[in-house]
């Protein structure tokens, strides 16, 4: 295990920035987000989670997919240049690290590989930071996530005395630590601090099986009463991955893009002709929970929630997925 002092952290980031763009959690007008480190300001790696998950770095809010040009009866398509930029994502927490594995299932498995996602994912090294302090809305341990050690990371960091402890997990991680040169020292007998113990807890056992039997349950009417039908929960969720594909046309040319979409919106399921199979917020909110807690486990064998707490923290009306799980388990069928 290696260590680095807090004061050396900017140098470490700069070392990694040779040949890659390094993203770190940074404050931005009262919120926080992963942005490229520009060498200025205070580098703290944040307290707990960023407001926005790193999802946007792999699955951008909006991305062009191809361009087209119409010439009379003929049309030509132009593919976009490959995404070759190398990146290092520093300070990602265990919950968000799990979310990347969930997104991998969606975009890389079951017979289709999404090239946009694949290129970004393969070109990005993950340096995770352990949590030794939980935020009020954290409940990652409910999904078997270890806040003290992230899954799928290349390097694991821990907050240590006056700085950080580091350990390479993968070959790419060893390469990163080698790149750091003499900025890193042997940590001797230093031990990582105890992992955070989130106060919010929920037992997810049996919830999928229960949900399979309660699609038409009146509970969904009750729980959706206060929901505003906004998309704050889905857009801040590290695992929500729904998108829409639309075009932007000017004259004879234009481009197709995809952009985030939200099952909380009325337009999401509206069909040609105007019919909407999810006409009210009851059906939409139900879908959000069923997707995370039933459909995803049925298809991929894991929950599509990582307990990061962003949705319940920022929901304007405190729709709380831990409470929904508890209540679902309690309602009579």
């Amino acid at each position: 295990m290696l260590k680095i002092g807090q004061d050396k952290l900017p140098e470490l980031i700069s070392a990694w920035a040779g040949g890659a763009r390094v993203f770190v959690p940074q404050e931005r007008e009262g919120t926080s987000i992963f942005t490229p480190w520009d060498g200025k300001g205070k580098l703290t790696l944040g307290q707990g989670n960023t407001l926005e998950p790193p999802k946007d770095l792999f699955f951008p809010r909006t991305e062009a997919m191809y361009r087209y040009q119409v010439n009379g009866p003929a049309a030509t398509l132009e593919t976009l240049p490959p995404l070759e930029e190398k990146r290092v994502l520093v300070g990602i927490r265990s919950c968000d690290a799990r979310s990347l594995l969930i997104m991998d299932d969606v975009f890389l498995t079951r017979g289709y590989v999404d090239e946009f996602y694949r290129q970004r994912r393969e070109n990005t090294r993950i340096v995770a930071l352990a949590c030794n302090e939980a935020q009020p809305a954290c409940f990652c341990t409910a999904f078997g996530i270890d806040p003290g050690r992230a899954e799928g990371a290349d390097v694991q960091m821990w907050p240590g005395e006056g700085g950080y402890l580091l350990e390479a997990i993968t070959d790419a991680g060893k390469e990163l630590l080698k790149q750091a040169g003499n900025l890193l020292e042997e940590a001797g007998n230093a031990h990582p601090p105890a992992a955070a113990a989130p106060g919010l807890q929920v037992d997810t056992g049996g919830v999928t099986e229960k949900l399979q039997r309660m699609f038409e349950h009146p509970y969904w009417t009750a729980v959706s009463r206060k929901c505003l039908g906004c998309g704050a929960c889905t857009y801040l969720c590290p695992t929500c991955h729904c998108f829409d594909i639309q075009g932007e046309n000017q004259g004879d040319s234009g481009y197709k893009f995809r952009c985030w979409d939200s099952c909380m919106f009325s337009e999401y399921t509206r069909m040609a002709g105007g019919h909407n199979p999810r006409p009210s917020k009851k059906e939409r909110l139900r879908n959000r929970f069923l997707h995370k807690l039933q459909y995803f486990p049925e298809r991929y064998g894991k929950f599509a929630c990582v307990g990061c707490g962003r949705c319940l923290d920022r929901c304007p009306v405190n729709v709380d997925i831990t409470r929904v799980i508890r209540e679902v388990k309690e309602v009579t069928l």
Partner: peptide, 27 residues
């Protein structure tokens, strides 16, 4: 530039009471 277009502002607003909002008709 930070706006996520989650429409929480619109959805909680008592002045926003259009039966159908222009922003729910992207096409």
């Amino acid at each position: 530039d930070r706006c996520l277009r989650c429409y929480a502002c619109r959805n909680i607003c008592p002045a926003c009471n259009c039966r159908e909002c222009i922003f729910d008709r992207s096409q």
